[in-house]
């Protein structure tokens, strides 16, 4: 298929950015979106134009590095996939595709389509863990966990930290990301001892870093490549109020 791409180009954080149009031909419908981007970059290098910078690594939908905003949607038009798992069969010959970076105050732009998501690491550092040192822990089977609880915890733990939730949210809120980690740990007996401290510390860090507030529009859940549920936000709120009231 032949396509027209409108790609956000920006030299660095300080430079002014703009959309630049590129034509690309003979793309197989079986190639992935990022393979199409590879072909574009090879074409640009040949033409002596600097290739488009974008984040990507595992290309299996699990590392959370890829982060393109395609035709107004984080990770593009397919459901429940990251960009690296999006295939060109979701587009038609002759389409114009608009490609932008994540846009959020807490994710400053680095170059072209790459942004700095280290704010997510900072939130995890504030309390996204169980405080145990290596060694000196009990036998794994000494802590029985209800299967359903373990499954709910795993549902939340599936978050890949890509930031699509923030990119999708009109407030650039990180509530889905934070709630997924809080839920994963607070649902488990291992996480209970620090449950209150964790939720307060992580919410505070999120606010300090400039993420917006949650107004329950649900865009995050709709765009999450791992289908992390809004229920986690409800759980976070409950945990948070409980911590504040106790």
């Amino acid at each position: 298929m032949d396509l027209t791409l409108k790609v956000w180009r920006q030299k660095n954080n300080k430079a002014k950015g703009k959309f630049v149009e590129y034509k690309i031909k003979n793309i197989s419908k079986d190639s992935s979106f990022l393979e199409m981007m590879d072909i574009l970059n090879e074409q640009l290098i040949e033409e002596g134009v600097e290739p488009v910078a974008f984040d990507h690594d595992c290309r299996e939908g699990i590392c959370g590095m890829c982060s393109l905003y395609i035709n107004g949607r984080p990770h593009g038009p397919d459901e429940a996939v990251t960009v690296c798992q999006l295939h060109m069969r979701k587009f038609n010959d002759g389409d114009t595709i608009v490609i932008e970076p994540w846009r959020a105050k807490a994710f400053p732009l680095i170059k072209d389509l790459m942004v700095d998501r280290s704010a997510f690491d900072t939130i995890i550092q504030a309390g996204g863990y169980v405080s145990v040192n290596t060694g000196g822990v009990p036998d794994a089977n000494s802590i029985p966990i209800e299967r359903d609880k373990a499954e709910l915890s795993m549902d939340a733990a599936a978050c890949i930290g890509c930031g699509a939730c923030v990119a999708a949210c009109k407030n650039a809120s990180a509530m889905l990301f934070v709630s997924a980690k809080v839920s994963q740990l607070n649902l488990l007996p291992q996480g209970k001892a620090e449950a209150k401290l964790r939720v307060e510390a992580m919410v505070k860090e999120m606010d300090d870093l400039g993420f917006g507030n949650c107004t329950n529009t649900g865009a995050c859940e709709a765009e999450c490549p791992k289908e992390i549920s809004l229920t986690n936000i409800a759980r976070l709120n409950r945990n948070f109020y409980a911590a504040k009231l106790s």
């Binding site: 145990v132 290596t134 822990v137 009990p138 036998d139 794994a140 299967r147 373990a150 488990l188 291992q190």
Partner: peptide, 22 residues
């Protein structure tokens, strides 16, 4: 064996049987 103990203590949500064990 220490690894499994360590990971469970960290809150890694391994698959479990209905009895609650791994």
């Amino acid at each position: 064996n220490n690894i499994i103990d360590q990971c469970v203590a960290q809150g890694v949500p391994f698959a479990r049987e209905y009895g609650g064990l791994l």
